[in-house]
Design a protein around this nucleic acid. Structure first.
Lengths: 205, 205
DNA sequence: CAAACAATCCCCTAAAAACATGATTTTCAG
DNA sequence: CTGAAAATCATGTTTTTAGGGGATTGTTTG
């Protein structure tokens, strides 16, 4: 008598992938899958799994809301959130709605099995990356930027190119480029999009 | 007896530019310039202009704060904000601090003279672009985006490239590219940086 | 005064994004 | 069932960034 697993995700590839990963596991019993929130709820009326793998983004309803609903009706079901997003807000919301785990869709077989075994014990499982994100969110190290860098940052956020910023500030575009590079380094941002995001999340706007 | 003008800006080129623009105007009397907030205040103790052109970004102090200070001590001085930024928050703050005008540093001669003549009458002058920004801010048209587009948007904001997003969502990078383009079009954003900015300002995060 | 920092500028390469255009398949609501 | 909307994929060009150097001028400050 193994752990009964059910999965709800609108990506067939994901369902198949996980099913394949788990099919060799003796102590896991695959109950099936649903691809929408509605069909998931319909299934649960007839049969309840021990663990439900639940996509955060479903076509008909948010996985976040669905999680809350299911835990209210069937508190015994341990829910593991499945997501492509390693985003603090999502993880937090899922945990707030009583999910027991959060794994990314690029998780390894070991990670998924580990997650299942962890939540079945009543514990919380977060994938490494997700745990990292949750940690980092409490240490929002705000970089120290200069006056000029801030000016450039605001103009970058406005969508101006280096050349346009240069014309606006009456300096060379090479200088703007240097400021941009320094900003990326200070914020540890990979590109301008994440730079702007960090600027918003850390205050500077 | 012309209108007495004084300018405070840390860019010598700007000072010279405006001085040059105004030197032929018979009814304008050029009192001089300051390049820091401190030297500006020192000058005002001895002599008060009718109109003060004031940079929003000074090296030692914010032009926004300085504006408030000056208007408190010398209410008769009409202050025109000078800025490279056509940003709603800046314009609003300067007007809140009793500035009488806001002109961009790329303004034409006519615009500056127009501004000076307007504020000397006790009226408010906003450069065309600034006025436009202030108008638009009251009409924050939120584009309607699809579920998938929103997913892509969040990943863009996280700093992922098209390829990385594609791998995460198990789709082709060409598709991500299409979503990105559609997002840029819907938000009327020029690039991903401004897209992220708009996403933050309009809610979607 | 020397060191640190800020701001300025330049060159180079490779990666990524922006722009244009077109097309197929799925999904969904009327 | 059917048409509109959404999601998918492709190809090619041009512009912009990202990442790696290096360098000069001021200013500030211990």
């Amino acid at each position: 008598m193994g752990i009964r697993i059910f999965i709800t995700d609108d990506h067939y590839m994901i369902i198949e992938g996980i099913r394949s990963l788990l099919q060799d596991e003796k102590n896991i019993e695959w109950l099936g899958h649903a691809m929408t929130a509605d069909s998931c709820l319909a299934f649960l009326k007839k049969q309840q799994p021990d663990v439900l793998l639940l996509d955060v983004n479903l076509p008909d309803k948010s996985g976040i809301d669905l999680c809350k609903e299911i835990k209210t009706r069937y508190p015994k079901i341990q829910i593991i959130a499945l997501s492509s997003f390693n985003q603090q807000s999502f993880i937090q919301k899922m945990l707030d709605n009583r999910a027991s785990g959060y794994v990314l869709k690029n998780a390894s077989k070991e990670e998924i099995i580990n997650a299942i075994e962890t939540v079945i014990e009543g514990d919380i499982f977060l994938s490494q990356e997700a745990a990292l994100v949750m940690d980092q969110c409490d240490i929002p190290k705000t970089p120290i930027i200069t006056r000029r860098e801030k000016e450039v940052l605001l103009l970058i956020a406005s969508g101006l190119t280096n050349l346009e910023i240069a014309e606006k500030l009456f300096i060379s575009s090479a200088t703007v480029d240097t400021h941009r590079k320094n900003l990326l380094a200070k914020f540890e941002a990979k590109n301008s999009a994440s730079l702007v995001r960090l600027a918003y999340e850390l205050n500077i706007v």
